[in-house]
């Protein structure tokens, strides 16, 4: 997969074929970021600033920067940038997270986990 040259400069873990992910959530976080950028919600330089700060903080606190830690930083940066750009508030995210947790704990086995779509 040919990455956007600017995205390439962010030095995402990848091999000759493109980005490498250990787990689905990492690919999801990556894909959301790419699509928000494509949609004009933020530029790559804005992203690099927020993400770079997460990586720097992580490095200071002694965490490794392996794939998992890398995408933990990515996810934290994504949560921050959607707040900075007034796309979503931390309150919305935390309320939604509680709903997903509730749904995952209480969904009868064999039923798809879904949550109410009322709280926009």
């Amino acid at each position: 997969m040919a990455l956007d040259p600017v995205l390439q400069s962010i030095n995402i873990p990848q091999d000759e074929e493109g980005p490498v992910f250990d787990e689905p959530w990492q690919a999801q976080a990556f894909a959301m970021t790419v699509k928000l950028n494509e949609g004009g919600q933020f530029s790559w330089s804005e992203w690099a600033e927020v993400f770079g700060a997460e990586i720097a903080a992580d490095t200071v606190s002694g965490q490794g920067v392996g794939n998992a830690a890398y995408y933990q930083c990515w996810l934290s940066a994504l949560e921050k940038i959607v707040d900075q750009k007034a796309l979503l508030t931390p309150e919305q995210l935390s309320a939604r997270k509680a709903e997903w947790r509730e749904a995952s704990e209480h969904t009868p086995h064999g039923q798809p986990i879904e949550i109410r779509k009322s709280s926009k």
Binding site: M32, L36, L75, L88, L93, R96
Partner: peptide, 15 residues
């Protein structure tokens, strides 16, 4: 981590 990603994803899609 999965909950955080799902929350972001579902809200961004809804909006």
């Amino acid at each position: 981590t999965v909950l955080r990603v799902k929350s972001l994803e579902s809200l961004l899609i809804e909006k």
